[in-house]
Amino acid sequence: MSERAADAGRGHDAEDSIEYFLEDMAYHGKSERTREAYGRVLREFEAFLSETGTEPAAADRRDCLAWVHELRGDHADSTVATYASYLNRFYSYMTQVGEFDGNPMTLVTQEMDEAIDTDPTRREVSIAQMRSFVAGITHPLERAVVLTLLKTGLRVGELCNLDVRDLALDAPAVEAAYDLGTRAQLDGRPDTLFVDPDVSRGEVANGEERTASNKRKRATLVPVDAELKAALVRWLAIRPDTPSPAEPLFASTRDAWGKRLTPEMVRSFVREHAERAGWYRSGADAAENVTPHYFRHFFTTHLRDRTGDRGVVKYLRGDVADDIIDTYTHNWGDRVREVYLANVYSLT
């Protein structure tokens, strides 16, 4: 009996190649956690291909290269290597069982194996040095974005996906102008950001199709300290009107006036500031360049060192860990907020 005939017998939709692969992983005894990790990466690759109307079975080497190139803007090299290995295994398996004609990731992974350091040693930036860097950023939007990344550990895509409704602020000056914090999860939690895990590239969320995905599996409530709050209030005072019904928190003040910031826009102005500081050089790697992803590394390193509490940092980063979620979400208002506000570094 052929593979497809077997699929028909077990009620499987053979047209969904990713589901086919994940189901076979289950038959081979792979854990649910492993299958979820593969599924998330493969669905993001599928969403990337959908922009050009390409199915995974028809993707070629250049499609895969383009996806890997995009990943590098949001992730460390080690993460890019992991995601690429997932895609390579998917194509290798589907080729072996006769579902696909070939594996377009073969050459891509060979080139990456030669080029990627899976454990890069990053530039060491002290809090005092970062404080000087932030002082040089005067534009209200850029300053608010950089401080948000540095003080929350959000990924750049997660930051771009924030809507006004995802921010609760005890600030009468802006509360009168915006419908802040209307999420049910923010009720009774002033000065807090809500990061929604259910926002994916290519899908509509809050009335707007998104161009980036949130990379976390569970909702996260992130405290906003007085320093970040001041930057956000200053930004909201001059934020342009936007055509989006979703009311993005961060909107462009450049050529795409009023439109939601994209990860590439953020990377562009962060690169400009990093170049002026001598922290970015074209052609350099993650060990040398300061990028939006570096800010997440900075947050993790310094807050973990100051708190001595890996659990709080993991929760704020949105890392998937049931024990961490169970420990902190039921008592969020006391534990996470207390630890964060007592230890978060000052950058202004």
Rank of each mutant, 00 (worst) to 15 (best):
A284R: 15
A284H: 15
A284V: 04
A284M: 09
D285Y: 13
D285M: 09
D285W: 05
A286S: 14
A286Y: 05
A286D: 10
A286K: 04
A287W: 06
E288D: 11
E288T: 08
N289W: 07
V290N: 12
V290R: 05
V290Q: 10
T291N: 07
T291E: 01
T291Y: 11
T291A: 02
P292T: 05
P292Y: 02
P292S: 11
P292I: 01
P292L: 03
H293F: 06
F295S: 00
F295V: 02
F295R: 03
F295Y: 02
F295C: 08
R296C: 10
R296G: 02
F298Q: 01
F298P: 01
F299N: 07
F299H: 08
T300S: 09
T300A: 07
T300E: 02
T301S: 10
T301H: 12
T301E: 07
T301R: 14
H302N: 11
H302G: 00
H302L: 00
H302V: 03
H302Q: 00
L303S: 06
L303E: 09
L303P: 00
L303A: 10
L303N: 08
R304S: 13
R306A: 08
R306M: 02
R306P: 01
T307A: 02
G308P: 05
G308D: 07
D309A: 12
D309V: 04
D309F: 09
R310F: 13
G311M: 04
G311D: 06
V312M: 09
V312C: 07
V312E: 01
V312N: 09
V313Q: 10
V313W: 04
K314Y: 13
K314N: 13
K314P: 03
Y315N: 09
Y315F: 09
Y315P: 02
Y315H: 13
L316I: 09
L316Q: 10
L316N: 11
R317G: 02
R317P: 01
R317Y: 09
R317M: 08
G318A: 07
G318S: 05
G318Y: 06
D319T: 03
D319K: 11
D319H: 09
V320H: 15
V320K: 15
A321I: 01
A321E: 14
D322L: 03
D322P: 00
D323M: 06
D323F: 05
D323A: 14
D323T: 15
I324K: 12
I324W: 07
I324E: 07
I325D: 15
I325S: 15
I325Q: 15
I325Y: 15
D326K: 12
D326G: 08
D326E: 12
T327Q: 13
T327L: 06
Y328N: 02
Y328E: 04
Y328P: 02
